[in-house]
Computed example of a mutant assay.
Amino acid sequence: MARFTSLEICAGAGGQALGLEKAGFDPVMLIDDDPHACATLHANRPEWDVRKLDLLEFVGHDHPQVLDVDLLAGGLPRLPYSSAAKPRHVDDRHDLLRAAIWLALEVRPRAIMLENVPALAKAPAFAETRGFVEEELKNGGYEHAWRVLDAQEYGVPQRREHGVLVAMRPDDFVRFTWPEPAGAAATVGDVLWRSMGSRGWGGAEEWRLVANEVAPTIVGGSKDRGGADLGPTRSKNIWARLGVNGGGIADDVPGPDFVMRTEDDPRDRKGLPKLTVAQVAVLQGFPPEWTFAGGKTARYRQVGHAFPPPLAAALGDRIAAALAGAH
Rank of each mutant, 00 (worst) to 15 (best):
V107H: 03
V219I: 15
P308K: 13
V188M: 11
G60Y: 10
M196T: 10
T217G: 07
A293V: 02
P170K: 07
R108Y: 03
R318N: 01
P216N: 13
R208M: 12
N44A: 08
V164A: 10
P179A: 09
K86V: 00
E128T: 15
A43R: 05
D91C: 14
T233I: 14
I249M: 07
L20D: 02
P288F: 00
T187I: 05
G202D: 13
G248E: 07
H42I: 00
R108L: 07
K138I: 00
P118A: 06
I9D: 06
D172P: 01
D26N: 15
R98F: 13
G203T: 01
G203A: 09
L323S: 08
Q279F: 06
I9V: 15
H305E: 07
R108P: 01
H42W: 12
V69Q: 01
D252H: 14
H94W: 11
E8Y: 03
E21N: 03
C38L: 07
A85M: 11
P232Y: 04
P254W: 09
G304M: 12
P118S: 05
P27L: 03
A211N: 04
F258N: 06
D264I: 15
L272A: 08
V280H: 00
G75A: 08
R267C: 05
A123Y: 07
M260Q: 15
L79H: 09
Q152F: 05
G226E: 12
E205H: 01
S198N: 00
Y81I: 02
R3Y: 10
V156D: 07
E128M: 12
G131N: 01
E8L: 06
P308T: 07
L67N: 09
F176D: 00
T40H: 06
R88T: 13
V148Y: 00
V156M: 09
E47Y: 08
I249N: 08
L72A: 11
N212H: 13
Q65Y: 00
I31E: 02
A314R: 13
R199A: 07
P256N: 02
V107C: 02
